[in-house]
Design a protein around this nucleic acid. Structure first.
Lengths: 169, 169
DNA sequence: CCTACCGATCGGTAGG
DNA sequence: CCTACCGATCGGTAGG
């Protein structure tokens, strides 16, 4: 895993061995972070599906962005390190993640059928949309100088309305 | 680094020590992959800037996608592992990457000024656009069943025209 | 919270 | 291409 116990110890100014007074194990900490994040994403989806009858991809993605902006570091760790979870946790996590993606895919397919979004390969839409919201957790920690409101608004606008000006002629 | 010499040896069916008959060192291999990729991206940009006078963000991104689709595995390694380059290579790489991003940012800022793309925070546009083309190198190796042409077309269309249907009323 | 230390695993070398 | 092995570093424990 990218960050060693000695890295973490140095960051808080103690010896590596002393970290074990605060956490059970490195695996335990990773487990907490990963499942904490997948719980937040799935809860958000659940809440959205119950709040409105025509479930709205845009509002799910907006809440997804809120979660990432609130838990940026944890989101980054979960995304880059979940593969190092020990079995069976790793498989549990994969299933939860797959479930989230499958349900987003369902929303996309429905929106295409209802012609609310254009005719495209649903999986390409899914991964592009996820990438568009998830770059924050990889890069934003180094560039926190962009206002969160503008960030959210611009990303959602790019996803749904695209880059190009419309009434150009 | 994520992949050990013993992993790589197993993949090709020899002992770890025997790999050193084919490569100089693990660092040397990483160096080759990372700088090979940044060379391709920068060359592509150079070619595009000279080919047309109004430099076209769309054509640069299309060629960027072509490179990723042709060198998917190398692109994935460079993106996820360049931080493990030893200095001064790591800093050299960072400078090349920064240069590429800065020049893309320049294209975006120009297009906004010329009202060819909508008024948005240029850096948010840059990172969203890069994320939209780069998810392939993280995920496509597991999902190669999507046609490359459709993939390219859909991603570029999402970036520039967005998801939503336009003439809906 | 520390020092001292463990077995496992890493990238890499020697010698054939 | 192999066996045998190296020093360094990892996550973690013992004992205080």
């Amino acid at each position: 895993m990218a960050t060693t116990m000695r890295d973490m110890a140095e960051e808080v100014g103690i010896e590596a061995a002393s970290l074990y007074n605060h956490i059970q194990s490195k695996q335990g900490l990773l487990h907490e972070i990963c499942f904490g994040m997948s719980h937040r994403y799935l809860n958000n989806l659940e809440r959205n599906l119950h709040a409105r009858r025509t479930s709205n991809l845009r509002s799910v993605l907006e809440s997804h962005l809120d979660i990432i902006l609130q838990y940026t570091d944890e989101a980054a760790v979960a995304e880059s390190e979940w593969r190092h979870l020990a079995e069976p946790a790793r498989n549990d996590f994969r299933i939860k993640r797959q479930n989230y993606e499958d349900r987003l895919l369902g929303l996309i397919e429905l929106a295409i059928k209802q012609k609310r979004i254009r005719q495209m390969e649903p999986k390409v839409v899914l991964y592009t949309v996820l990438a568009a919201v998830q770059w924050i957790q990889r890069w934003y920690s180094e560039r926190r100088n962009i206002d969160k409101g503008i960030l959210k608004q611009n990303i959602l606008s790019m996803i749904f309305e695209g880059l190009e000006t419309k009434g150009n002629g």
